[in-house]
Simulated assay, not measured.
Amino acid sequence: MRIAVLSGAGISAESGVPTFRDDKNGLWAKFDPYQLSSTQGWQEHPERVWAWYLWRHHLVKAVEPNDGHRAVAAWQDVADVTVVTQNVDNLHERAGSSPVHHLHGSLFDFRCDRCGLAYDGPLEDVPEPTLELMPPTCSSCGGLIRPDIVWFGEPLPDAPWNAAVEAVNTADLLVVVGTSGIVYPAAGLPELAVARGTVVVEVNPEPTPLSSSATVTVRESASTALPTLLDRLPTLLGTD
């Protein structure tokens, strides 16, 4: 069986991955997200954007994969599994999943803002919010090193997107977990599967725009639903 998994913020929230709005009273609460997650913000204040992302990098390193992440990784024992994620953490990889295609980039990948060369040099640890830190410079061209994250106004990277479309087009089962279903183009992947007649299982405690067209909707959290999902699938589909 070929399984494609599309994951969103809901699966990582159960691990305690903080969102921008979790910092309601902290240093970053006064900033609009656009100031910290756009090419314009980077061009105007690279030291501010770098400091914010290094702090997020530190926070995400401190949390662990949950039972949902581990369940998806365990499915590899019985199926051909491809993970497509909207998340910028590395919890799927740390749980053991491979391949994992990051549609919106990763807090754990960095590149030059000028020539695009990947950066794997040292990073300053930022356990406390810091307003400004100067980014490292590229060893090849002298450009600034930026997070390899898709910012507002930037297109999705071609390679992960093409891999995601391929995974959905060849899947026997698409599991959509913890995603709102409103952020495009990622939200178009379940629509592609539905149009192809692929079995689509939505795992989300709350209704989403996908709920009405999914083959099955499971109103449970990822860590509750995913460990037993494959065993329950015949019953959910009415084929047992």
Results as ranks from 00 to 15, higher is better:
10 G>A: 05
169 N>L: 14
218 V>I: 03
221 S>Q: 09
180 S>E: 06
61 K>I: 00
111 R>W: 03
93 E>I: 04
224 T>C: 00
201 V>T: 02
50 W>I: 05
72 V>E: 08
124 E>P: 00
23 D>K: 07
174 L>E: 09
115 C>W: 13
55 W>A: 06
98 S>D: 14
107 L>P: 01
152 F>R: 06
148 D>T: 04
56 R>G: 04
204 N>C: 06
23 D>W: 06
38 S>A: 02
189 L>G: 12
137 T>D: 06
101 H>S: 04
45 H>A: 11
168 V>M: 03
151 W>M: 14
63 V>K: 04
18 P>N: 04
168 V>Y: 02
123 L>R: 10
120 D>I: 00
182 I>S: 12
4 A>Q: 09
9 A>P: 02
59 L>R: 14
9 A>E: 03
208 T>K: 07
211 S>Q: 10
115 C>G: 14
205 P>Y: 05
143 G>V: 06
233 L>T: 11
212 S>F: 11
99 P>W: 04
196 R>G: 13
234 P>S: 11
104 H>T: 00
190 P>V: 06
25 N>S: 10
111 R>C: 13
164 A>Y: 00
123 L>D: 00
43 Q>T: 03
96 G>M: 10
165 V>Y: 09
47 E>V: 01
92 H>V: 11
240 D>S: 15
28 W>V: 00
130 T>R: 13
42 W>N: 03
22 D>Q: 08
67 D>I: 00
7 S>H: 02
190 P>K: 07
219 R>C: 01
137 T>H: 14
101 H>Q: 04
40 Q>A: 13
188 G>P: 04
125 D>L: 13
144 L>Y: 03
152 F>G: 10
68 G>H: 09
77 D>S: 15
180 S>N: 04
57 H>N: 12
229 L>S: 01
93 E>W: 07
34 Y>R: 15
185 P>C: 09
32 D>A: 10
143 G>L: 06
47 E>A: 14
198 T>W: 04
31 F>Y: 15
34 Y>N: 08
226 L>G: 02
177 V>I: 12
121 G>C: 07
173 L>I: 12
217 T>W: 08
224 T>V: 11
38 S>N: 03
173 L>G: 11
24 K>V: 05
209 P>V: 06
124 E>I: 12
61 K>A: 05
86 Q>R: 01
234 P>W: 07
167 A>M: 12
235 T>Q: 15
15 S>T: 05
88 V>R: 01
3 I>E: 10
195 A>H: 13
171 A>W: 10
30 K>S: 15
28 W>K: 00
139 S>G: 15
132 E>T: 04
1 M>N: 13
87 N>V: 01
6 L>I: 11
120 D>G: 05
1 M>D: 13
25 N>L: 09
76 Q>G: 14
129 P>A: 11
114 R>K: 14
